[in-house]
């Protein structure tokens, strides 16, 4: 099984349609819209708690080095009304997360889409938090 981590400091326009709803605070207060990140890894933990869910995953680069990441998703109440639950994602699930890194440089991201290997999106919603959405981030 090949797990690849790719950190892209570039705009990607693939983030439409499956965006977690974030309303707790401004996107710009924490995340950098110029630091898009695509993470492929294994889910190690899920916090189904307010004010946002958090997905924890381990990624592995080509040399086999493991990195621990945490990505913020939408509020559990809004996700619940969209049909998701804490059981929608399980520990050991393989996921691909597209999002944006935090400004502080830690392995923290704001997830704009979460996909299973089947291509199915998990925790889809809509984001209008001032963060990047259908448009590629401004360079």
């Amino acid at each position: 099984m090949r797990v690849k981590q790719a950190v892209l400091v570039a705009g990607i326009g693939l983030l439409a349609a499956t965006l977690p709803l974030v309303a707790h605070h401004s996107f710009a207060a924490e995340f950098d819209s110029t630091k898009a990140v695509t993470l492929q890894g294994v889910v190690t933990k899920l916090d189904w708690m307010n004010p946002h869910i958090w997905i924890y995953l381990d990624t592995k680069d080509d040399s086999g080095t493991v990195a621990h990441w945490q990505c913020e998703g939408g509020p559990p109440n809004a996700l619940t009304r969209q049909g998701w639950s804490k059981d929608s994602l399980k520990i050991s699930d393989q996921v691909t997360i597209e999002g944006f890194r935090s400004k502080d440089g830690t392995n923290t991201c704001n997830a704009r889409s979460v996909k299973l290997p089947s291509g199915k999106s998990v925790f889809a919603g809509s984001a209008e938090d001032g963060g990047p959405s259908k448009k590629a981030p401004t360079q």
């Binding site: 707790h24 605070h25 207060a29 924490e30 916090d47 708690m49 307010n50 004010p51 946002h52 958090w54 945490q70 913020e72 509020p75 109440n77 619940t80 009304r81 935090s102 400004k103 502080d104 830690t106 923290t108």
Partner: peptide, 22 residues
């Protein structure tokens, strides 16, 4: 078809607790 749900902002506000937010 909806009911109001509890929303505790403080219970897991990692953004602040871990210093990602000022």
């Amino acid at each position: 078809d909806w009911e109001i749900m509890e929303y505790s902002c403080e219970e897991n506000n990692k953004d602040l607790y871990e210093g990602h937010l000022k």
